[in-house]
Computed example of a mutant assay.
Amino acid sequence: MRQIKDVKLGDHVCLAFAHEAEQRAVVTAFLAGGLESRERVLYFSDAPGSERVRSWLEEAGVDVASAGAARRLEFRTAQESYLSGGRFDPDTMIEMLRREVDASLAAGWAGLRVSGEMSWALAGQPGTDQLEDYERRVTGVYAVGHAVGLCQYDARLFPAERLTGLTDCHPEQAQMNALFETGTLSITPTFDADGARVLRVAGTVDHSTTPTWSAALRQAARAGGDVRVDMAELEFIDVAGIRELAVAASALTEGSSLRIRHLAPRLRQIITLVGWDAVPGLVIEQEAVRA
């Protein structure tokens, strides 16, 4: 996973988002970052009209009108890009991107920044069965170092198996910028399909990072409602860090809960042994058992 602030020329990343709030945060940061870096920005939308993305940028303080007038920011539909000619052809799309990169450099810009909404691929247009091949091959266009691409996949629409295959065609996946970050711990917001915020924890929670960990949980609790913590990428957490989960759950308003997912079995055993599983509001979500 790569935080969107760290994505740069030469990268080809994807975003598999479960809610528009996550899409908005990542896409806005990606496009605004390109404009700030004197890159030309090209955006491919699923449907006619780009008012939604324009409004995201405007609310983030981007002068969309000026960027458009200077031809630094351009919006095109899927029919004007991926499906030009009435079908999807990887060779045609890759050649078009190469031309756009050359044109951007010739105009004096630092490079080309591209983002595309990919749900058009679900409409059954001819050639869409070649999308995986395209995603693998187009990495070479970006790897030259003069362009960067962000492909957007709506996880609510793409079948899970195909979504996994498509994301695997990218060297890395993009995610929202971390709310809290130290040398060994990052806590990044993401969203469930119902719009509920989830804190994704990666790295180590120990004596050096416990203050950051505690601050993140307190901030999440102040927002109201349930606090969801995804620990799939957690490498280590000491007893003091586990205690902070119980403390945070105890401080929630009545009716709210701190819900932990992807908790390692040994950590579940520690919580049970100490008795913190009985803390009101602390919920350890059960993992689905595969047949």
Rank of each mutant, 00 (worst) to 15 (best):
P171E: 15
T77P: 00
V64H: 01
T209Y: 08
E135G: 09
E36Y: 01
A78N: 02
R99S: 05
S50I: 00
F236P: 03
E161F: 14
T139E: 14
T164M: 15
I242C: 11
H170M: 09
G183S: 14
P171G: 15
V274M: 07
D89K: 00
A106Q: 15
G61F: 03
S55G: 00
F44A: 05
R98A: 12
A160D: 15
E80C: 02
D102L: 04
S257N: 13
A251F: 08
L9H: 08
L199I: 09
A220I: 07
T77A: 01
W109E: 13
L131M: 06
S208V: 06
P280F: 14
G127T: 09
R222S: 04
L185I: 07
H146P: 00
T190A: 14
L234T: 02
Y142N: 11
P189C: 11
E51I: 00
V239H: 00
R137N: 13
F158V: 03
T253E: 13
G165R: 15
L282K: 06
D192N: 11
F158C: 11
E80Q: 10
L199V: 08
E22R: 00
L199D: 07
V114I: 14
V247D: 05
L234K: 05
A248V: 10
A29K: 10
A21Y: 06
R136A: 06
L267V: 10
E233C: 10
R24W: 01
A67C: 07
D6T: 03
